[in-house]
Amino acid sequence: MVLAIEVRGLVKIYPGGIKALNGVDLDVDEGIIYALLGPNGAGKTTLIRIITTQLRQTDGYVKVFGHDTSTQGSNVRSLIGYVPQEMSLWSDLTGYENMLIYSKIYGIPSNSRKKIIEELLEFMDLREASNRMVRIYSGGMIRRLEIAIALMHRPRLLVLDEPTIGLDPAARRLVWGKITEYCKEYNMTIFFATHYMDEADRYANYIALMNRGIIIARGKPEELKQNVEGDRITLKLSSIDDNISILNIFSEIEGITILKTDGDTIEFSTSNVSYTLPKILEKLFQNNLKIYEIKIHEATLDDVFIKLTGRRLSEEEYGRYREAITMRKMIRRGS
């Protein structure tokens, strides 16, 4: 079966000398939702812009359904729908007009134009708002309209660059609800970039972790998380007279690794919380130890990222906040 996206040895050096991609290989099977997860500046947008034929690579190649992006660009363009990171609507036109203009640019035949637009507006819950100016749309409405526009020509591959950046959790859920619903119905492949790990975890079938222009890990979300020690548990206990005896108690339990003891607190990891925790509780109870507090931290993709790079995925909370502000400003400013 031909791959939806095949990336081999991809290198991109920008004119200023910045090496944004440093040898990327990717295989995206048809029909899946594939996430490209990485912090700001990892090279996600650069990779997406090469896949969507906007940029030329310095080395390597990309094929979309077997078509080379640098020699068969127009074939590739007719197969993909794309939503850029920045807003791509005319804010001084209505939602309907935006769809109409793009449908003409995309060469949708005039006899089916109206039907396609109305169906997609309905599907995205935008029918009521369709005669309002995009200028007054919320961020979530803007993204839904952009996705609707990207779907008008029935692409086999939908490429989304940070589809929910700057949106609140409810808007993010709605956007993703629509995407997955559509995907199921039409068996479309989705390739999206994000720096929200929870989003990749929840919606993707397959994830590639990206950092500084290379893919550092890839796999199904569960597989990736199995790479780290597993779930972490922190217990705060009643008076501990003798640390060693506590350690003794814990060392008798199978399947745990003690990470840290600090006064009356002990932190350990286990591959299966639901199975080990009852055993531990029983043991502590037998030894007349009281528990004041239990904290369970299930393994996340962030842990995977920390393990591989020593950095948090979402370290720059400030940067993220700023991006959201910029996005909203851009939307307001219009063109």
């Binding site: 363009r77 990171q85 920045e86 640019i105 063109s335």
Partner: peptide, 20 residues
């Protein structure tokens, strides 16, 4: 200036990935 705004915005990116 409107075209330059569209470069900052995604419109230009979107247009160059369309089949035209």
């Amino acid at each position: 200036i409107s075209l330059v705004f569209e470069r900052d915005l995604g419109i230009l990116k979107k247009l160059i990935t369309s089949p035209i």
